[in-house]
C-alpha cells in the first residue's frame, strides 16, 4: 500500500514536510515517494497528507494508478472546458 507521485508534479515542496513517514523525497524530474515507507497515512491521518495539499490534479496516484485528485476536483475546471479552451488557443 503506497502512493506514487507522477510526472504532472510541479515540485512545489508542499507535500514533503507533511509526510508522517518521511517517505517523500526530492528527485529529478520530480518528487518521489519511497514505496517502502509510505502507509498512505493510515493510522496517522484521515486523509493522505500529500494528496490533501497537492495543488495539481492527477499528480498523486494510488497503486491502481487512480488519481487521488481527479481532473476538475481541485480547480473546478472541467476536463471538457479545459480541452475546449486549449483548442481555442491553438487555433489562434
Amino acid at each position: 500500500m503506497a502512493l506514487e507521485i507522477v510526472e504532472s508534479c510541479v515540485n512545489c515542496w508542499a507535500c514533503e514536510p507533511l509526510c508522517p513517514n518521511q517517505a517523500i523525497y526530492e528527485a529529478k524530474p520530480h518528487f518521489m515517494v519511497d514505496a517502502n515507507k509510505c502507509t498512505e497515512c493510515a493510522g496517522d491521518f484521515a486523509d493522505a497528507q500529500c494528496a490533501a495539499i497537492c495543488p495539481v490534479e492527477g499528480a498523486i496516484v494510488n497503486e491502481r494508478h487512480e488519481a487521488l485528485n481527479p481532473p476538475g476536483s481541485l480547480t473546478g475546471i472541467s476536463p471538457a472546458r479545459w480541452a475546449a479552451v486549449q483548442a481555442e488557443i491553438a487555433a489562434r
Binding site: N11, C12, W13, A14, P17, I53, P55, L74, T75, G76
Partner: peptide, 8 residues
C-alpha cells in the same frame, strides 16, 4: 514554493 490555499 509551497502554498496552503488555491486561488482562482
Amino acid at each position: 514554493p509551497a502554498c496552503n490555499i488555491q486561488c482562482n
